[in-house]
C-alpha cells in the first residue's frame, strides 16, 4: 500500500538527492536550501520513499507546457 501511491497519476517522481548531488544542484541555482519550496517529512510520499529531514528531493513533474519539468523540495518537519 505504501508504495502504491507513488504510481498514482497525480504523484510525480520523487528522488532523494545524495549530499553531494544536493550541494551541486544548489550551487548551480546559486541558492541556499532554505530558499527551496518545502515538503513535510510526514508527507505520504516522503514516508514512502524514506526521506529524512534536511534531504533535498528532486521532483520530475509532467508539465503540460514544458513536457518534463524538474524541481526541488526541501524535507522539513
Amino acid at each position: 500500500m505504501k508504495k502504491d501511491i507513488l504510481k498514482h497519476e497525480l504523484v510525480p517522481d520523487h528522488v532523494i538527492l545524495s549530499k553531494s548531488e544536493a550541494t551541486k544542484t544548489l550551487k548551480k541555482m546559486d541558492i541556499h536550501p532554505e530558499q527551496l519550496p518545502r515538503i513535510k517529512s510526514d508527507d505520504p510520499v516522503s514516508k514512502a520513499i524514506g526521506a529524512k529531514e534536511g534531504d533535498v528531493l528532486e521532483i520530475t513533474r509532467k508539465s503540460s507546457t514544458a513536457g518534463k519539468f524538474v524541481t526541488y523540495r526541501l524535507v522539513q518537519d
Partner: peptide, 13 residues
C-alpha cells in the same frame, strides 16, 4: 489528495 498522496499531488489536483 494532500493527505493521501502528498503535496505534489495536491498541486496537480
Amino acid at each position: 489528495v494532500e493527505k493521501v498522496l502528498g503535496v505534489e499531488a495536491a498541486r496537480n489536483a
